[in-house]
Every structure is written in C-alpha cells, then in structure tokens.
Design a binder for these strands. Structure first.
Lengths: 120, 120
DNA sequence: GATGTATTCAACCTCTAGGTTGATAAAGCG
DNA sequence: CGCTTTATCAACCTAGAGGTTGAATACATC
C-alpha cells in the first residue's frame, strides 16, 4: 500500500480551520499570500521585500503549509511555494454559511414586520 | 462635538484583519459565532453549552467585539451579543480577492496552452 | 571533492493567548 | 435595604507564537 501524501486524515476539519484562520491572522503571512496570488515564488523571493530573516519567513511558510493554504514542490535547491485556491474557498464557505444565515434572518424579520403593518 | 462611538479610526484595516482572523482561529469562538448566527444571545446563554468558566467566555466575547465581529447592547443586567454580518463580509472579500486572482491566472494559462496546441 | 546557494533545524528569548480563581460592579427583586 | 443575577476586572499560570543567531543539510557547479 502506498504511503499517503495528501491531507493527513488525522487532522480534523476543525484543526484545519484553526490553522488556516490563525495563519491569516498574521500580516506578514497575508502579504505572502497576496504575493503568491500573483504566482509561485521561492523562499528567497518571498523573504526579499521584508525586513525579517529568511528563517522567520521559512517558519511562516511552514505555518501556511500546515494550514493547507500553500503547497511546495522541489526544484533543485529551491522550494517554490504555490497558493491553493481551494483552501481559500473552504474558508469563505465557512464564513459565508453563517453570514448568509444572519442575512436570511433579517429578511424573514423584515417580512414579518411588513405583514404586521398590513394588519395592525 | 459628540464622542465617536463607532469603529475607532486609529485601528487600521490591517489591524482589523489581524484581529478578525485571529478571533476565528479559536474553535470555541467559532462555535460562538455559529450560535450567534441563529440569533442574539447573552453571555450566560453562550457559555452554557461549554465546559469553560463564564469569565473565559466573557474574554472570548471581548476578542470578538474588538475584532468588530460582534456588537453588544445593554438590556438590564444582560449584555446580549449580536453577530455583524458585514464584518464577516469584509473577511470573505479579502480572501476571495486573492482566490479569484489565482483562478484567473489558471484560466489565462489554460487559454495559452490551448492556443499553443493549435499552432505547434 | 571543494565551494556556493537555497533552505531548514536547533536553541534561545520575550510577549501574548487562553485558561483558572477570587473579588467587584451594576441592575432587578424580596 | 439586603440578596440575587449577570457580567466584568484583576492576578496569576502555562503553553505557544514569532523573532533572533548559528549550525546543518541538500543540490549544483567548478
């Protein structure tokens, strides 16, 4: 049987959300995400615009990777990073689910108020 | 001149994102958000399902409030919490901006590859 | 095989997040 | 007014985040 390389099943959906939201709570990591949206980049390229050490950026990338937001391939000595849009999609799905629930409650409330105006 | 009660302008958009994503990175706070999507609730009501102290929940609510995700009104001794769907919307807007950038890059790449197949 | 380049590992430091307990504040109620 | 309910404040503890420096690994090149 092959070794499973994809998404560790021992990591729950809850953990994935924990890590992904935590990953995006750091401004440097958000800037990294913004950069990666433009296209893949190596650790050095990602570190260049910032005034922190390469090691710090390397740690940030590990956080993003553990959160499932980025993947990395090997290319000689380089480890180019790739932003996974599906992971971002899962986050918006979580948020939007609740946002829409609230919006729908508002609509139902509006409808109720409107119907009561007709029969005072 | 009236005292400004709404969104402290000293808090940058960056800070707002920091706090909002950090707020959602905690599983208990996400469950609180899920509960509030169903309707407003007091601190006691929110704390009831969980095995932590009331004080802990009170702290969590402060985090959510400082992140702008919830607002609170006064009702006798109670402080009912209200989930702000617009705050959630700002988060999805941030995420979706980058997710769509990536998706569009894919589409352009697909188009390029398709056009190259026609002229080998 | 020695050297250079890209990245990570390891040890360490400091600050904060999330939890606890105990005391305090504010508003209704007998 | 004293008592109860609801919620917060204050002090404390522990684990982890995010940063640093210095050493180690992995591949490419000379």
């Amino acid at each position: 049987m092959d070794k499973v390389e994809l998404a560790d099943p021992a990591i729950s959906e809850e953990d994935r959300l924990n890590r992904a939201f935590a990953a995006l709570s750091d401004p440097l990591r958000r800037r990294i995400v913004a950069r990666l949206a433009q296209g893949d980049a190596t650790v050095n390229e990602l570190a260049e615009p910032f005034s922190v050490t390469l090691q710090a950026v390397s740690k940030h990338l590990k956080v993003l990777e553990d959160a499932g937001l980025i993947t990395r391939r090997r290319e000689a000595q380089r480890r180019p990073c790739h932003l996974d849009p599906e992971a971002l999609g899962r986050l918006t799905a979580w948020i939007e689910g609740y946002r829409q629930t609230v919006e729908e409650r508002y609509e139902r409330l509006d409808a109720l108020l409107a119907s009561q105006e007709n029969q005072p």
